[in-house]
Amino acid sequence: MTHLLIACATFAFMEFWAWFMHKYVQHGPLWVLHRSHHVRPSPRPFERNDWFFVIYGAISAALFVTGEGGSRWWFWVGVGIAAYGCVYFFVHDGLIHGRLPFWKKTDSVYLRALNMAHKMHHKTQGRDHSQEFGLLWVSPKYLRLAREQAARRAGPAEA
């Protein structure tokens, strides 16, 4: 049970960490890497921004390797980081940016709100004046907009 709690707590912490790193590091001193993510359409299948996946993957792998097969607590931190990375890849790169061709649309109000928030982030292509830096946490205004949009699509009978 402790292992599961460590992995889940790490996963939850990663949302805050991703927001912080995105806002203050990727849109700051490491803009040189992150800039490629704000150029649309991307001319290549891989962007300089993808180095962040490599960095977090390496950290997670190091925690796995040194965590003695799960007997050390940091192995489970690595599990939480890896789980967050997988969710990040499928939601952010797969759904939002369409890098996975099999996942193009969704009827989920939450995922549509997430997509709206991310589009607001990309509204500016420069490093300054962006907003919405998180991945899984969505501002209530985008959830409200997505619900309103779903109600309009459903029509007056279901709204």
Rank of each mutant, 00 (worst) to 15 (best):
M120C: 15
Q131W: 06
S139P: 10
Y56A: 15
Y24R: 14
V91T: 09
A58N: 10
R72V: 00
A146F: 06
M116L: 15
W137G: 11
I59D: 02
G134Y: 11
M14G: 08
R99E: 03
Y24L: 09
Y142E: 01
G85F: 05
K104Y: 04
Q26F: 15
M21I: 15
V79D: 05
H27Q: 03
G80C: 08
Q131C: 09
P45S: 03
Y110A: 04
G28K: 12
R35Y: 08
H3P: 11
P140Y: 01
A12H: 10
A83R: 02
H129L: 09
K104F: 08
K123D: 11
F75L: 04
R44W: 07
A157W: 12
M14R: 05
Y24W: 12
R99G: 10
E158R: 15
L143F: 01
K123H: 13
C8I: 15
A61P: 03
A62R: 04
A157V: 14
A151C: 13
V87H: 01
V65F: 05
H92E: 03
H37M: 02
Y24V: 06
R152F: 02
E68G: 12
F16A: 10
L4A: 05
S60G: 14
Y110D: 03
H122W: 00
F75R: 12
R127G: 07
Q125C: 10
I96A: 04
R152T: 15
C86H: 07
N49S: 15
H97W: 01
F89W: 02
T106W: 04
L4G: 13
H37P: 04
